[in-house]
Design a binder for these strands. Structure first.
Lengths: 208, 208
DNA sequence: CAGTTATTCTACCGAACAGTAGTTAAATGC
DNA sequence: GCATTTAACTACTGTTCGGTAGAATAACTG
């Protein structure tokens, strides 16, 4: 296994792909949390040795930050794609929450959200993680406001739609799903809230 | 400082009150989380020495469990008391969420909830904590159903009120407030959701 | 094929941490 | 007062963990 698109300089090339390693690292942190993920476990689960990990990523905290960024890139995209598929916001929001439920309670990965369930609780102790949280939320915030604006412009939402109120409840209901999933609720229980949550968000925006 | 109501047997009496110590322990775990709360810090912040702590509580995990139980006893009572004060559920639920906001984002203690923000994420690693979670949620569950039933009986809620649906949203919105608080939101921001959440819960139960 | 550069591996280090041994101190019961 | 019982304190131990030397290996460059 060789790095797909490395600049291929001098010296011995990496025997692993950085993103593949990060995907495995994500699962370790996601499952065990930051403290319980010792560097030896991380090395074993990635198939690398500890010095290789440190050489590639720096420190345990750096590795965690890299994993969070990779997680955000790869995992959060799918639910927003589901949101954009349907023209009707009621279907779009429902599909968003359905995909979101899979992301936080689906098979093949630990329950909850790496960012909200694992990273958030310890951000006070990890400066580089705290720095991430200072910039991160604004992205999805802006994305959702843009979504509501677009649906207002296309006539799928009334011009009186209260995007700010809807967004606030939209995020709250997502947070609740994450907690429910991390608490061990089965996928079905989380998915079953998708339609209810979509209706509530629209109702909060003024769509009856 | 002497234990208020100890059996006063033979031997040298405790120089501290167990509940006073637990109240200080709660603040340490609540602020730093379980792993970052080392036994030396716990000893310093309680004013005891490490052997005294171990003699009184057993292990670090036992101390954590004792702190959680004390936390539940003392902290969660206030918001339910606020709920019961007003006859009108709209006021009762609003007052509940207002008090709840103080409990999770007020001054004088760390943000978030010791149980949901600190204990829940690590319950898989701590058997005695996991055991707590197997029995804990059912209490507040039953208490809220009893509350709705009582308000239906007194005529403040319609007989058609959907208690199960209302309860589900009630808990979800509380969970969202906890996450918001732990993420660093100021008290005002959390409190500002009290009336909205109360209205949503009633609406979900069928009260327009 | 050397010479250079970067990676990988084995083995290890120092620090931090949960927990404790063993002594001293303070109360009770007789 | 004296023996007994329990708590408190000082000082320590064994382990675990994040991180790293330093040697060995594998590619590229000329």
């Amino acid at each position: 296994m060789v790095d797909k698109d490395a600049p291929r300089g001098r010296g011995r090339p990496r025997s692993f792909d950085t993103d593949d390693v990060l995907d495995k690292v994500i699962n370790v942190f996601w499952e065990l949390g930051y403290d319980a993920s010792d560097t030896e476990t991380l090395a074993r689960r990635t198939g690398l040795t500890k010095p290789s990990l440190y050489n590639a990523f720096g420190s345990k905290e750096d590795l965690f930050v890299a994993a969070i960024q990779r997680y955000k890139q790869t995992r959060s995209r799918s639910s927003f794609e589901a949101l954009m598929q349907a023209d009707d916001p009621r279907h779009g929001l429902r599909d968003y929450y359905l995909q979101f439920a899979d992301n936080i309670a689906g098979a093949g990965h630990p329950p909850g959200c790496l960012i909200m369930s694992i990273a958030l609780p310890i951000r006070n102790r990890l400066p580089k993680v705290a720095a991430l949280f200072d910039t991160m939320p604004q992205e999805s915030h802006a994305r959702m406001i843009a979504y509501f604006d677009a649906r207002i412009a296309s006539g799928h939402l009334p011009v009186t739609f209260d995007s700010a109120a809807a967004l606030s409840l939209f995020q709250d209901l997502g947070a609740a799903m994450i907690m429910q999933a991390r608490a061990g609720a089965p996928l079905d229980a989380v998915r079953s809230k998708a339609q209810r949550n979509a209706n509530l968000v629209l109702s909060e925006g003024g769509v009856r």
